[in-house]
């Protein structure tokens, strides 16, 4: 792991009308680092995550991926081309999987690589097999998403994101919609990614998982980062009252 800044968020602010959802947030994530974002509902975690790939553009501030500014101000056409390009480097996994129901697992994984990277059918198939093997679902390659369990769906969604060979992965409560017994299989895939030194930013309500996988934890409340640090500090010895209150409710131990 190097200390080189990989994802940088500078003075990020976002409002919906008069509602300030993010207030002057700064965050630097270095290559291979794994950052968890925790905080109460409505604190702006998803908004911050979705600002990183311009799904919810910031009102002001900057987002950088390495030396490329993600939220560059450009004329419409150039802007579209620019975000389409940088998004290929930023994988995202959603709470509700968002698999394409009209495509098989193979189709879900190969659609974007074929379209955007011009892979041949054979290359795309190989890619799909490779990614599915990684998430342990090789035998499901020709299934439709409707025939998969929630945990399997999320693993396919991860494989779909990884197939673009992203530099960083964003997870927005990847396991929140899952039955408890299906959470672990998804967590295992994420742990495996961690071992491969994938740079990850993970919004989660699972404190145990955050504690065991992440290098750093950010606690957000009302649009600001209240405190951040290594999991050992944030979970065992938080400096702020708000953090303690939140953890009291969420640590089941």
């Amino acid at each position: 792991m190097t200390d080189q800044a990989f994802v940088t968020i500078k003075n990020a602010a976002k409002s919906y009308g008069s509602l300030e959802v993010l207030k002057d947030i700064n965050l630097t994530v270095s290559r291979g680092q794994i950052v968890a974002i925790i905080g109460p509902s409505g604190s702006g975690k998803s908004t911050l995550l979705r600002a990183i790939n311009e799904l919810d553009p910031l009102s002001s501030g900057e987002v950088w991926l390495e030396d490329v500014q993600v939220n560059k101000k450009l004329p419409h056409r150039q802007y579209e081309a620019h975000v389409n390009h940088v998004r290929q480097n930023i994988g995202m996994v959603f709470q509700h999987f968002n698999l394409f129901p009209h495509l098989t697992v193979r189709g879900n994984i190969t659609l974007a690589p074929r379209m955007l990277k011009g892979l041949s059918e054979a290359e795309a198939d190989r890619l799909a097999e490779e990614q599915l093997a990684k998430v342990g679902l090789s035998e499901k390659i020709d299934e439709y998403p409707s025939r998969l369990s929630g945990g399997q769906k999320q693993r396919v969604a991860i494989a779909r994101a990884l197939a673009m060979k992203p530099k960083v992965m964003l997870f927005d409560e990847a396991t929140s919609a899952l039955d408890p017994e299906l959470v672990e299989e998804v967590n295992l895939v994420m742990k495996q990614l961690a071992e491969e030194h994938m740079t990850m930013i993970i919004v989660t309500h699972e404190m145990d998982f955050a504690a065991s996988v992440c290098d750093r934890v950010l606690f957000m409340d009302q649009g600001v980062v209240v405190e951040e640090g290594p999991p050992s500090v944030i979970f065992q010895n938080p400096a702020h009252e708000r953090t303690r209150n939140f953890l009291r409710k969420h640590l089941s131990r």
Binding site: H85, F94, N98, L111
Partner: peptide
Amino acid sequence: RGQTEAARTLGMSRWETMRKVVLPQ
């Protein structure tokens, strides 16, 4: 909306997303 978001997140353009993801559904 999640369908569009997933496709756009992968880097697909508005039109590619419409044609390959939204319209078929």
